[in-house]
């Protein structure tokens, strides 16, 4: 099974879908991975090439244990890796070298956690909280040097997670889905160039999942989300990374996503009607 990547096709299909607001808010920002290799226990993740540009909305699909979380953790700097991850800071925000010129590329692994966190937010699968803070206090958990969203952008993030009326509620008194929405709101309120979401909608009902996905599709930064609801992903995302056994088998635009690609990674027969994907009877 050959790896079909955008790079091999010679095209950069991400450009047409680049979010207009991303160009305005995070101009030129991108993350380029080359020959990324990451081992955890007996599992090995290998990614030859992956580029993410500001504004892209990418769904990461694959069966349980195929390496989605490992990829996220490598990108977020939580796991050691081999290979290169280069970060291109948004214009005007790059680090300046001794001659005063802005550095074009930054080695991602050389940034400390605080510097990485200025550009990337990550929602793990099992985001949890020690003690019993109010929702407002959870949203305020951020480092002093970071600039979380304010005003209308923050209000929009809270609306997307349907959290406007929950701000004074104690976190531990919420249901599982509500807790997940608090953590989603916290990540969205950070307003980073890159947002990694590990199964963001898994415990959400249809209404709240839709509210969130609509918002995620509109935010200026890039979103890379591991999804198991393929139909929901097809509805709102434009680019798809299909993973199997630690490798990205396909990196395709929505229009290029074929049913047989999905069948390959999930190992079952599927039927597709527009954005709706269902298992064969």
């Amino acid at each position: 099974m050959g790896q079909v990547t955008r790079a091999e096709k010679g095209g950069n299909a991400s450009d047409p879908q680049e979010h207009p607001a991303a160009r305005a808010e995070h101009p030129g920002a991108a993350l380029h991975c080359r020959n990324l290799e990451c081992r955890r226990g007996g599992f090995s993740l290998q990614v030859e090439h992956l580029s993410i540009k500001a504004g892209e909305k990418i769904a990461l699909l694959g069966e349980n244990g195929c390496g989605k979380t490992t990829l996220f953790q490598a990108l977020a700097g939580l796991l050691p890796f081999r290979g290169n991850i280069e970060f291109i800071a948004p214009q005007g925000e790059g680090e300046r070298n001794q001659t005063g010129r802005e550095a074009e590329f930054l080695r991602w692994e050389r940034l400390n956690p605080e510097e990485r966190a200025r550009h990337m937010a990550y929602l793990p699968q099992e985001a949890g909280l020690l003690f019993n803070l109010t929702v407002n206090e959870v949203l305020a958990l951020t480092l002093a040097g970071q600039r979380p969203l304010q005003g209308e952008a923050r209000a929009a993030a809270l609306r997307a997670a349907a959290m406007e009326d929950f701000l004074e509620r104690p976190f531990q008194a919420l249901s599982g889905g509500e807790k997940r929405r608090v953590m989603l709101a916290r990540v969205l309120c950070r307003g980073c160039v890159f947002t990694l979401l590990d199964e963001p909608t898994a415990p959400l009902d249809m209404r709240h999942a839709t509210l969130f996905m609509r918002h995620a599709a509109r935010i200026p930064g890039a979103v890379l989300a591991a999804m198991h609801d393929v139909s929901l992903a097809l509805r709102y995302f434009q680019r798809f990374l299909l993973m199997k056994e630690g490798r990205i088998l396909y990196d395709v635009a929505k229009e290029e996503l074929a049913t047989d690609m999905l069948e390959t990674i999930y190992g079952i027969g599927l039927e597709r009607c527009g954005d709706l994907v269902m298992p064969e009877l």
Partner: peptide, 20 residues
């Protein structure tokens, strides 16, 4: 204190929020 308060989150969220 801001680093310490982030330890209230799970480790992955705290690390990804900038805490060593």
């Amino acid at each position: 204190r801001d680093h310490l308060a982030l330890l209230f989150l799970d480790d992955a969220s705290a690390q990804a929020s900038g805490v060593d």
